[in-house]
């Protein structure tokens, strides 16, 4: 009953949430900062992109603005933590919850902005399939990130998550790099939100629900399946993990076979994820 169009949908959503996974990978893994800003910055991306689109401006401009606004949110969380010494988890929670008001303000007090009449990145050239646009987009982002992480600056970012004492000794400005890392991370997450709203043709204040969970699940699923050291494989595995996670949800939605109700969905998704982890462990051991 899983059909080709559902597979394509999982791919599309997987690629969009792949950006979220990349952002989460940057914060939780690369610079080792438990950043909870993402539920807010995802919606911020959707909100800021949609007001740009409503003003009939170019979709690429909308994506740029979404990235910048997300980056500002991330920089805010990092600054609260590094400059005001507010604990990392709390900084993220504070910014995410403040973003709720900011997002409503950006959206002009409306919880939902329709984009049905706007030119989005997906209907700019209707002849190009959405999947192709997203694949190219993701490919470019991975190339840029992979390049960055293998530069002196990127190496400094990677060192943050491992040994801050040595990082300090070799003259790395930890505050500045944490701000940079979280800005990049939330910029990507915000881009994800901007793409989702354009794909769905509306921006919704509720679309941030579960961003963190799906991003983390994608990162860990990817790490489990492709445990390699190379930065390139790690980045790609975030995307693969995100696509797989969407597949799992797509599968779990077919719960009518088991005569279950919609509200059983989360339970089924959880059980399927656990199964994947167990199978993977087993095959690796023997």
């Amino acid at each position: 009953m899983i059909t080709s169009s559902e597979l394509i949908l999982s791919l599309v959503l997987g690629l969009i949430y792949g950006l979220v996974a990349l952002g989460i990978y940057l914060s939780f893994r690369i610079i080792d900062f438990p950043d909870l800003t993402c539920d807010g910055s995802f919606v911020l991306g959707a909100a800021s992109a949609s007001i740009v689109l409503q003003a009939d401006l170019h979709p690429l401009l909308a994506l740029t603005i979404a990235f910048i606004s997300g980056a500002l949110a991330g920089a805010m969380t990092a600054s609260l933590n590094r400059l005001l010494k507010i604990p990392a988890l709390l900084s993220g929670i504070l910014v995410a919850s403040m973003l709720y008001s900011v997002n409503l303000e950006v959206m002009g007090g409306l919880p939902n902005i329709p984009l049905i009449d706007s030119t989005t990145i997906f209907n700019l050239h209707p002849s190009i399939p959405i999947l192709l646009i997203l694949s190219i987009f993701t490919f470019v982002i991975i190339c840029l990130l992979g390049y960055l992480l293998n530069t002196d600056l990127g190496l400094a970012l990677r060192s943050l998550g491992q040994n801050q004492q040595l990082a300090k000794h070799v003259g790395i400005n930890i505050t500045l790099l944490t701000i940079l890392g979280l800005a990049l991370s939330n910029g990507l997450i915000s881009l994800g939100g901007a793409l989702l709203s354009q794909y769905q043709n509306f921006a919704d204040i509720g679309s941030g629900i579960g961003t963190l969970i799906s991003g983390l699940a994608a990162v860990m699923l990817g790490e489990q399946l492709l445990p390699f050291r190379s930065v390139w494989i790690k980045l790609s595995s975030c995307i693969i993990g995100a696509v797989l996670y969407r597949f799992v949800i797509g599968l779990a939605l077919h719960n009518e076979i088991l005569h279950l109700e919609t509200y059983h969905l989360n339970l089924i998704v959880g059980l399927m994820m656990i199964t994947i982890f167990i199978i993977n462990r087993r095959t690796r051991r023997c």
């Binding site: 059909t3 169009s5 959503l13 794909y199 509306f202 509720g206 579960g210 949800i249 919609t262 969905l265």
Partner: peptide, 22 residues
Amino acid sequence: IVTESAQSNPTLAKQIAEKFKR
């Protein structure tokens, strides 16, 4: 009659809608 709830999550709504379509 098939009834589904999107659990207030637009992304989930999209996946359910795709399932309906088929």
